[in-house]
Write a protein that binds this DNA or RNA. Sequence first.
DNA 1: GTGAAAGCGCTAACAC
DNA 2: GTGTTAGCGCTTTCAC
Lengths: 327, 327
Amino acid sequence: MRATIRDVAREAGVSIATVSRVLRDSGAVRAETRDRVLAAAGELEFVPSQLGRQLAERRHAANGIVFPDLSGPYYAEVVLGYESVAAELGRSVLILSTRGRDDAEAAVQAMAERCDGLVVLGRTVPDAAIERLAARGASIVLVARPPVGGVDSVNARNRQGARALTEHLLDLGVRSLVYVGDPSTSPDVAERMRGIQEALPPDAELRLHHVDALDEESGARIVGDYLTRALPDAFVCANDELALGLLGRLRAAGVDIPGRVQVTGWDDVMAARYAGLTTVRQPMRELGATAARLLDELIGGTRTHPRHELLPTELVVRTTTLGKVSP
Amino acid sequence: MRATIRDVAREAGVSIATVSRVLRDSGAVRAETRDRVLAAAGELEFVPSQLGRQLAERRHAANGIVFPDLSGPYYAEVVLGYESVAAELGRSVLILSTRGRDDAEAAVQAMAERCDGLVVLGRTVPDAAIERLAARGASIVLVARPPVGGVDSVNARNRQGARALTEHLLDLGVRSLVYVGDPSTSPDVAERMRGIQEALPPDAELRLHHVDALDEESGARIVGDYLTRALPDAFVCANDELALGLLGRLRAAGVDIPGRVQVTGWDDVMAARYAGLTTVRQPMRELGATAARLLDELIGGTRTHPRHELLPTELVVRTTTLGKVSP
DNA sequence: GTGAAAGCGCTAACAC
DNA sequence: GTGTTAGCGCTTTCAC
């Protein structure tokens, strides 16, 4: 059995309160006593039980993060940014992936009981679940998801990025675009579409091509629909994976890109560089880091009014949009 | 303030022991009493404190996982595989990234105090640290790292994969190969090189080109050394990122691939497909899942003898090795 | 079947 | 400065 604070107290000939003081460096302790305690602790290889400490302090010293997946680079980067700041702040990080989970809400609820606050990414659980948690007094920060009630949020400037992307395409002569994605899968996807619409002049046309999933396969699958009839001037895809799938199939069909049709993605994943894909980069790590800081303020009670951070995006132009359309 | 078990007991007119029994479904409780307790708990919106429960049970019901990074797809997938099994087993998952941390060992030690067991990926902390933890009675499973002392481990068959890859190259006529990587960065990288050596006949030559990091930039940087002097028949890279960087630079220099030189990677990341890179795939998710199961046995005390699992790898042949060398 | 009571290992008033 | 003591919120014997 491991040594407890009582063992150390006995060994050092002091009370447990003194041991606690020395170890936490709280309260004044005479140097000589202090040394005795440290010696005893060292002798017994004493490591304070986090379980006991947490219960006494009534805090977990841990934060959770809920995400749909970790496969793409997107969420992985956000999680990393979050973890590094949380660690600096002395908090452990609990993770929860909702992928393939039918009881996501229950899992999040359970997780909330094991940490002092949590970050929720994207469309992992319904708004109602967020509100229930918030109502129970949980500290929550939403990322890549529009604000709900008085809950903090951190988002990338999707609309702004989409407008920049659209203007870039318009400059190249694009007049008809197809947005590939499903606005209902994630708030980001919906916001991007809105941004495009905002930037579009009356003489340009935007259609939505709905796909079930934001993966390569879905991107490839829709190409068939366009080979038999007219191609638009540009395919604007909700994310890079979709764009990469679409791009591969188009090229395989001998379609000239960007001569005949231009293609864009979103996220700037590593493969986008190899494919020469024009895309929009988001500060993924910074999204996570910002969330960690907001959450810390919330838990620490430093702040009571909700905050909603918006982080910048950046257009990355590559070869899938370099050509001029009908010059 | 939240309701405690005492509030529920008072409300239901029973003792806290009975409330505990009902909520944990342990011990026999009369149906009528049971209903009263459940009603009271519902009324008060009682949710048992994990802090109290954990201390009483003296367990965290959480496992940790330590990894170097989450940027590449490799560790992310392992973590996901781990998380999904851990969740099934009713355990929370704590994460710890050692990237850019100079106090990695202390951080791991701290994490060990907050969970019932942990998984350590790759070369995150020195063997001595693992041994110290194990000596203190921690339950540990190593992944992508050779066994240390009596600690469990899960690895992919690196040697086997490397042999298959080497034989594939030999079949194509390759006789001189350069292994690009740093065997000291990770045990996997070293094992792969060993596998190549084992498969090589006396008339074939293998050299090691040492790089500092396993990223694209390092891969690209070494190309210059070969443009002025002789190229080998094949570059076998320690991972895909290295190979992708090297590939890009070679192609930019007008080198015919695979006609003049063949290139291979390792991991089969998404970008590898777009680059047509021949590589070796590992069951990343399964590595994590297996680790979770081993750890559970360890924590549960089901098993005392260490186990060392080896999972299969798979050669994925693409266009960077399709041609015949000097037919 | 149910309750009283003794912990689990710590922190933090409060007293001296 | 240091010790005593009362919790933190639960689980779990052991009586009855």
